[in-house]
C-alpha cells in the first residue's frame, strides 16, 4: 500500500487522542479506597480470614454446600426450566383450557414468596394430607360403592416424612422457578420471527416438530442469558431451604458453627466466599452456553463475513 505524503495529498493520520482526565481521577480515588479496605483487612483482626477459611472447610459446611446449594440449585433449576418451557408452550397453545391452566399456575407461584412456599411445604402439606394415595381418582368411594375390598390404591406416600426431605424443598423451589422461567421462555419463543414457523409449516412440519426443531433452538439464544441470571439467583435462594427446615444447607451450617464457636463474622465471610465462588463458576458456564446457542447468528459462527441476522434476509 502506498501512502503518498508529498504534494497536497494528505497522508497517514497521526492525531493526538482525546484526554480523559476523569478516568485518572476515578482511578486514584478507587486505589485509595481499596488500599484503605485492604489495610482494614490486615489490621482489623475481627475479620478473621484464617478462621473463615477453616469454617469453609468444615465437613458440615461442605455437606451443606454440596447437598443444599449445588444439588438444590441443579435440581430446582432442572424442574424450573423443563416446567417453565412446558408452561410457556401451554400459554401459547391454541387450546384455551391449557392457556388458562398456564396463566393460573404463573399467577399463583409468582405471587407467593419462596420463603412462605417452603415453610408451607415443610409443615403445612403434611398436616393437611398426611398420606398421598396414588391410584384411580375417587377409588375409595368407588370401591365402597361397588362393595369391593380393594380401594384402587397402588402406593401411598407418607407426606410428613417426605415433606421435610431435600427433595421436597427442591420440588418447591422448582415449582416456583418454573413460573419465572415460563415468562422467560415465552419471551424467547415470541422473539423468533414468525417466518420461521411459516417456513416449517410450508415444509409439512407439524406444530410439535416446528417448536422442537426450529423455534426452541432459536429461542434459546434469548432464553439462556436470563436463565443464567435465574440460576445464580437460585444459588442464593437455596438458603431458603432452611425454612422447610432442611439443615444440610450452606448458610444454616456456617451460621450454626459461627454461633457455636462465637466466630460470627468469620462465618459470614466463609458463606459469602462460597456463594461468590459458585456464582463465578456459573458465569463461566453461561459464557459457553451463550456461545453454543448463538450459532449461526454471527457471534458464534466460524469465519463470519456477514454480521446480520439471518433468516430475516438481513432486513
Amino acid at each position: 500500500m502506498t501512502t503518498p505524503t508529498t504534494d497536497d495529498r494528505p497522508g497517514l493520520i497521526e492525531a493526538r487522542p482525546v484526554r480523559h482526565p476523569g478516568r485518572w481521577v476515578a482511578l486514584a480515588v478507587i486505589i485509595v479506597l481499596v488500599a484503605m479496605l485492604i489495610s482494614s483487612f490486615i489490621t482489623n483482626e475481627r475479620w478473621g480470614f484464617s478462621k473463615a477459611l477453616e469454617i469453609m472447610n468444615q465437613k458440615p459446611v461442605l455437606e451443606g454446600l454440596w447437598k443444599g446449594t449445588i444439588v438444590g440449585t441443579i435440581g430446582s433449576m432442572a424442574i424450573g426450566i423443563v416446567g417453565g418451557v412446558i408452561i410457556a408452550i401451554l400459554r401459547l397453545s391454541q387450546n384455551p383450557v391449557l392457556r388458562g391452566v398456564s396463566f393460573v399456575y404463573t399467577w399463583f407461584f409468582r405471587g407467593i414468596p419462596r420463603l412462605v412456599l417452603l415453610a408451607m411445604i415443610g409443615s403445612g402439606i403434611g398436616f393437611l394430607y398426611a398420606n398421598l394415595d396414588f391410584g384411580i381418582p375417587f377409588g375409595k368411594q368407588l370401591a365402597s360403592l361397588m362393595g369391593l375390598s380393594s380401594d384402587f390404591t397402588f402406593f401411598t406416600l407418607d407426606v410428613n416424612q417426605f415433606s421435610s426431605s431435600l427433595l421436597a424443598g427442591i420440588i418447591g423451589l422448582g415449582l416456583s422457578e418454573a413460573a419465572y422461567m415460563a415468562e422467560i421462555a415465552r419471551a424467547g419463543i415470541l422473539s423468533v420471527d414468525k417466518g420461521q414457523n411459516e417456513a416449517a409449516a410450508a415444509l409439512g412440519m407439524n406444530r410439535g416438530q416446528s417448536m422442537r426443531r426450529i423455534v426452541l433452538p432459536q429461542a434459546m439464544r434469548v432464553i439462556v442469558p436470563p436463565t443464567g441470571n435465574e440460576t445464580i439467583a437460585m444459588v442464593k435462594d437455596t438458603s431458603l431451604l432452611s425454612a422447610i427446615p432442611i439443615i444440610t444447607e450452606l448458610f444454616y451450617q456456617t451460621r450454626a458453627i459461627g454461633t457455636r464457636t462465637l466466630q460470627i463474622m468469620p462465618s459470614f465471610v466463609a458463606v459469602t466466599a462460597w456463594y461468590l465462588l459458585v456464582g463465578s463458576v456459573l458465569m463461566v458456564g453461561q459464557y459457553f452456553l451463550e456461545k453454543r446457542f448463538g450459532r449461526g447468528f454471527g457471534t458464534g459462527a466460524p469465519n463470519k463475513r456477514f454480521a446480520r441476522p439471518a433468516g430475516a434476509g438481513g432486513a
Binding site: 420461521q196 417456513a199 410450508a202 409439512g204 450459532r295 449461526g296 433468516g311 434476509g313
Partner: peptide, 19 residues
C-alpha cells in the same frame, strides 16, 4: 401438514433456519 408436504414454498425473505 400432509397437504402442505406436496407444495413447496419460497418466501420473499427466504426464512432459512439460521441455526
Amino acid at each position: 401438514a400432509t397437504q402442505r408436504r406436496e407444495i413447496g414454498m419460497v418466501f420473499q425473505r427466504f426464512n432459512l433456519f439460521p441455526h
